[in-house]
Structure formats: C-alpha cells, structure tokens
Amino acid sequence: MLKLDNIVAGYGRTRILHGVTLDVPKGGLVALLGGNGTGKSTVLKTIVGLVKAQEGQVTLAGQIINDVPTEDRAALGLSLVPQGKEVFGGMSVEENLLMGAFHRRRHRTEIAGDLEGVYQRFKRLRERRNVAAGMLSGGERQMLSIGRSLMARPTMLLLDEPSAALAPRVVEEIADAILALRDLGLTLLLVEQNVGMALDIADYIYVIRGGRIAFEREVGDGVAMDELQEFYLGGKEHA
C-alpha cells in the first residue's frame, strides 16, 4: 500500500532523512519507532507532502506521489492523525468530526453514516458531541483526532505518536481502537516512542535513528524488548 524507497529529505539545506526505505503492506499495521529528533515526524511529513523528498520515491497503492499536492494525497486515501492531539478547541466535538469530511461535504447521507460509525466506535465522543473540543481530556482529544481522520474515509492512516502523554489505561484504549481500525481493513503506519505499545499491536517494526533505519523485523519473529531497546537507544546498527 505504501512504500518509501531511499528517501532523502529535510528542511532547506539541512538533511534529516538519509535514504529511508520502508514498506507498509495493504491491511498491515507497521510501527516506526525512534526517540526525539530521529526523523520520525519528517517521515510522515514527507509521506503527506508537507516536506518534499529531495531523492527517492514515495509510492501509494502503486502510484508514485512525489509531485502530488498534499490536498490531493488525501483524495487518494491518505490521512494523517497529527501529533499533539490537535483539535479545533473552540468548535464542538461534532463540528470537529465534520471538518474531517469537508472535501466530501456534498455527500451528506454518506457523511451522516460515517459520523454514526465514529460515535459507535468512540462512545465518549457521542456523549460529548456538543462540548467544545478544547474542554476534552487528552485521551478524548486523541479519540477525536482519530475520528476526524476516519471521516475522510481513508484507506491508509498515519498516526503520529497517539499514546504520547496519556495515562496507561487510556493508552490501552487507544491501542484497542487502532487494532479495530486494522480489522476494518485500513492500512496503518504508527509512529511511536512507546516500544511496549508497538510490540503489542504492530505486525512489523522499524527503528529510525539519525534519519536512517537502524533496525527492522517482524514482531512475531522473536523480537525481545531488551534487544529492541539496544537499537532504539543506539547500541547497535542495522541487522
């Protein structure tokens, strides 16, 4: 579904990514792990077109999208849940959700059905549908961010550190919601610092360090937490 092939990217003359290659198969749940400043967010920005790839190719569903504008990538089925649980604080929960379907606003019947689907998946959002989004808890804002992305009817969902600054109980809820999305047929790329969460839910993991992939492996292929931590913290190179 999504493939990055030898991506070099950055800001101005500063290169952040140095030949990043990764593959997210259709229907898969792949995690990209790394600490602060390793290039994780730049990978996502390059995928959605906010940062231009200086070298390499970004391919979505067999189509090279390097020159496709950001807004048109959404129409191709690509949707990003940004870091920081970003919501429109002065708007209600329901208004935030409807913003996710803005480019589909002529299809009112479909949108109404999708809205009901989000409310069934995140029951707390239904309860708080008329509450200003700025009044929500961190976990509720994360649910709202995911729900808003779902309103765009994506086939490929990018999640930027959805567990950040959340209580362990809420992290479990978000993890369950992500697994449920995979079960719906969505393809997911999860960018995280939470190693435990990634090992619990992902099919395949990559570790990025210094703008390069330092480690990759199937989760079910004997990946131990202590081994992964060595790559994550910088003790080893790619194997």
Rank of each mutant, 00 (worst) to 15 (best):
M1Q: 13
L2C: 12
D5H: 09
A9I: 07
A9L: 09
G10S: 10
R15W: 02
H18C: 10
V24S: 13
P25R: 03
A31M: 06
L32I: 12
L32G: 13
L33D: 07
L33M: 05
L33H: 03
G34S: 13
K40H: 10
L44T: 08
K45I: 00
T46Q: 11
I47W: 03
G49E: 10
G49A: 08
K52T: 12
L60M: 05
A61M: 11
Q63G: 00
P69V: 06
P69G: 04
T70H: 04
D72M: 12
A74L: 08
L78D: 04
S79W: 04
V81R: 09
P82C: 07
P82V: 07
Q83C: 07
G84M: 03
K85R: 15
K85P: 00
E86L: 11
F88D: 05
L97Y: 01
L98H: 02
M99C: 14
F102H: 13
H103Q: 13
I111M: 15
E116H: 05
G117F: 02
K123C: 05
R124C: 01
L125V: 11
R128T: 03
R129V: 01
A132Q: 14
G134H: 12
G134L: 13
S137W: 04
Q142M: 12
L144W: 02
L144E: 07
L144P: 11
S145G: 14
S149H: 12
A152N: 11
A152E: 09
R153I: 07
P154A: 03
L157N: 12
L158Q: 10
E161M: 07
P162D: 11
A164D: 12
A165E: 15
A167S: 14
V171F: 02
E173Q: 15
A177H: 09
I178V: 15
L179T: 06
D183Y: 00
D183Q: 10
L184H: 13
T187P: 05
L189R: 09
L190N: 09
V191M: 02
Q193L: 11
M197R: 05
D200Q: 14
I201F: 00
A202E: 04
A202Q: 08
D203C: 09
Y204E: 10
I205E: 06
V207R: 00
V207P: 06
I208Y: 01
I208C: 11
R212T: 14
I213V: 15
F215S: 05
F215H: 02
E216H: 12
E216R: 08
E218S: 07
E218H: 09
D221S: 15
D221L: 08
G222W: 00
V223P: 03
M225K: 14
M225C: 00
M225A: 10
D226A: 12
D226L: 04
L228K: 00
Q229S: 02
E230G: 06
G234R: 01
G234M: 04
G235N: 05
